[in-house]
């Protein structure tokens, strides 16, 4: 994917199909059209973060392009947090985040709060594209995505790894706020290494006929996965969580739970089990031993 043009404020404008309202930089707020009658325009935002290797071999967060509501803040030498500066996404919003981890650098990406997906006009979309270079480390551990009633959301992750990349990628989805039926969400996750597929997965939340099926989510209210490049020695299973060594390489920790706290603890148990058995240290917060993002 070619690099989008960088604007003067460091924000980038995503070329969008006709009808899209491209908003970048600090001005990109939640606008209302039609003379303030309350009908809002859908947001189009494209944020990016990229690392580079300094001459003395350290990681430099060389590019940090926020596009509200996706605002990025550097919180450590190689740590970046997503800070939501507007509600949503709401229906119709199309958000994109590009993550580029240069060879032999480290990036930890988290978020300060969970993402609440709200209804609106049409479907909202979050597209995350990440490239992790040879020998680089990426730890992606945002707070959960919560599907509010009536939302219609697409969550697409494309993860392209080079050989010897070290990755921990966690994804958590909560079916509605407390006591609420979830809206609809379609999530797709694809990870490849040197072009070869490691894992491809998709699921839909919010179809009442399928959600409660004992084959799909059963009685769970949250679903989560963590993809790790470390390959667990063997499959493990505990209450609501399985550690699944993948066919090519890597591990998928897959969990179901009644609430977000239980989901997080099940995923972390699986991440730890996969990393202890495997050959990877990224689950403990990267090679430099700094504190990880929770």
């Amino acid at each position: 994917m070619p690099s989008p043009p960088t604007g003067p404020t460091g924000s980038i404008a995503l070329p969008e199909p006709a009808g899209g309202d491209v908003r970048t930089g600090e001005r990109a707020g939640r606008g209302t059209a039609d003379g303030g009658l309350g009908r809002r325009r859908a947001m189009r935002a494209h944020a990016a973060v990229a690392t580079s290797l300094s001459v003395d071999g350290r990681t430099v967060v060389g590019r940090l392009a926020s596009a509200p509501p996706l605002t990025l803040r550097q919180t450590g030498p190689y740590t970046v947090h997503l800070v939501s500066t507007a509600a949503g996404p709401l229906g119709g919003d199309r958000l994109a985040l590009d993550v580029d981890v240069a060879p032999r650098t480290t990036l930890e990406l988290g978020s300060v709060a969970s993402t609440l997906v709200l209804p609106g006009e049409g479907e909202s979309e979050m597209l995350i594209t990440a490239r992790v270079g040879a020998g680089a480390t990426l730890r992606f551990t945002p707070e959960p995505t919560v599907l509010a009633a009536g939302c219609r959301h697409r969550l697409i992750v494309r993860l392209a790894l080079e050989p010897d990349a070290s990755v921990l990628w966690r994804e958590e989805i909560v079916f509605g706020r407390y006591g609420e039926e979830p809206g609809r969400c379609h999530a797709r996750f694809d990870a490849t290494c040197a072009g070869r597929p490691l894992i491809r997965q998709e699921f839909t939340v919010g179809d009442p006929a399928l959600d409660t099926s004992p084959a799909v989510f059963g009685a769970a209210r949250c679903v989560g996965t963590t993809f790790l490049t470390a390959t667990a020695k063997e499959a493990l299973v505990a209450d609501g969580v399985a550690v699944l060594p993948l066919a090519a390489s890597g591990t998928l920790v897959s969990a179901l739970a009644g609430d977000a706290v239980e989901l997080r603890s099940r995923l972390k148990w699986g991440e730890k089990a996969a990393s202890v058995d495997g050959d990877d240290c990224v689950a403990y917060g990267g090679r430099t031993g700094g504190p990880g993002i929770q």
Binding site: E202, P214, V237
Partner: peptide, 20 residues
């Protein structure tokens, strides 16, 4: 790569529980 990739988390868990 564009083919569907439908997964069922509960079936994954059941399969591994059964194997053990």
């Amino acid at each position: 790569e564009a083919l569907p990739a439908y997964s069922a988390p509960a079936l994954d868990l059941l399969a591994e529980q059964h194997a053990q």
